[in-house]
């Protein structure tokens, strides 16, 4: 009942947010330097030709008119065409999106597993070795740029140690892509028992995932540590210990379970930021996801993809936040009655 009302309110809010994002995405074309019509025709086109092109693209109409046309197209699934790839943007997007999802999920998985374990270890022994490691990683995650870390890792593991393949794509060139099911190579090759593709895709995934994972690792570790310290010092943990429960039960089932509540919201936020980080990582590792696609579109002044990606990533961010808030209902019973 209350839950449904809350959900209803959040959905209404989501509509507003999406409307705002669509306005920003739409206006972007008009704010960015360069004329889309001119950039398509090239510097040698005559002014008449450019004007014709502008009329063809609907750029001569008023802004509200253009917005309505644009949104109408979006709702029909028409995001415009990329003049660089000559494909509809929607098609290009569907093709590249799974690669980014694979990268982001792998990075997030790494960051959560490592960040939560490190945070717990740091909280259990304040000022111990793990606590210092957590601090160090925190400083690194905040101060070192992602692409720089990526380059360092490439130098170390590819050019020096020769243990990982060169950062060129998602699979070795002589390995065929697994049958497409989800589009995530690791998952697809697992599902189809394609061990060769699995091995190759994992080898190619490791470095970009680690690079991207460092970004959310620091805040997740810090949040886990703080929440865990609070939980360990709480009255209910002391009471649980007074009951004679085992240390593992007290630390994992009681303290960690309570500490995870703020960590979950933190992780949700990080997932949004990961999309931003993915752009840089995909460039460094030539990972053919939407980050690389966005980068190439920006360089080539390819407006339709840029506009669409702003819209899609924005909506995605809003949806993730909504999902995280819904997750709260599952993990924190106190929210249910409010």
């Amino acid at each position: 009942m209350t839950r449904r009302r809350y959900l209803g309110r959040r959905l209404a809010l989501l509509v507003l947010v999406v409307f705002g994002i669509s306005i920003v995405a739409f206006l972007l074309v008009h704010v960015l330097p360069g004329d889309p019509a001119r950039s398509r025709l090239g510097v040698f086109a005559t002014e008449e030709l450019v004007q014709l092109k502008r009329a063809e693209m609907g750029l001569d109409k008023s802004l509200p008119e253009q917005y309505v046309t644009y949104m109408g197209n979006v709702f029909r699934g028409d995001l415009g065409d990329s003049w660089r790839t000559h494909n509809p943007v929607a098609e290009d997007f569907v093709e590249r999106f799974p690669a980014t999802i694979e990268l982001a999920l792998a990075a997030l998985l790494l960051a959560v597993v490592l960040g939560v374990s490190l945070g717990v270890a740091a909280a259990l022994r304040r000022n111990g070795p793990f606590d210092h490691l957590a601090t160090l990683l925190g400083i690194l995650g905040i101060s070192a740029p992602v692409f720089w870390i990526g380059l360092l890792l490439i130098i170390a593991f590819v050019t020096q140690l020769h243990v990982l393949p060169a950062p060129l794509g998602r699979l070795a060139s002589d390995v065929e892509a697994p049958t497409q099911i989800t589009g995530l190579y690791v998952v697809d090759s697992l599902l189809t028992a394609n061990w060769e593709a699995l091995r190759s895709s994992l080898l190619y995934l490791v470095l970009p995932a680690v690079t991207l994972g460092i970004l959310p690792l620091a805040p997740i570790t810090r949040m886990t540590r703080a929440a865990m310290i609070e939980a360990l010092d709480s009255d209910f943990v002391r009471a649980a210990r007074a009951l004679g429960l085992s240390r593992t039960q007290v630390v994992v089932k009681i303290a960690l379970r309570n500490a995870l509540i703020p960590v979950v919201s933190m992780v949700g936020l990080q997932l949004g930021y990961l999309v931003g980080g993915a752009v840089l990582v995909e460039i460094v590792f030539t990972w053919s996801g939407i980050g690389l696609y966005l980068y190439r579109s920006v360089i080539g002044l390819d407006f339709a993809p840029i506009q669409s990606l702003v819209l899609i990533v924005g909506v995605l961010f809003a949806l993730i936040n909504l999902a995280v808030d819904m997750l709260y209902f599952a993990i924190d019973p106190r929210i249910r009655v409010r």
Binding site: D235, F236, A239, I331
Partner: peptide, 13 residues
Amino acid sequence: MIFQNPRASLDPV
């Protein structure tokens, strides 16, 4: 052992 603050001594979740 019975503690001073009963509500805080129970696992909230």
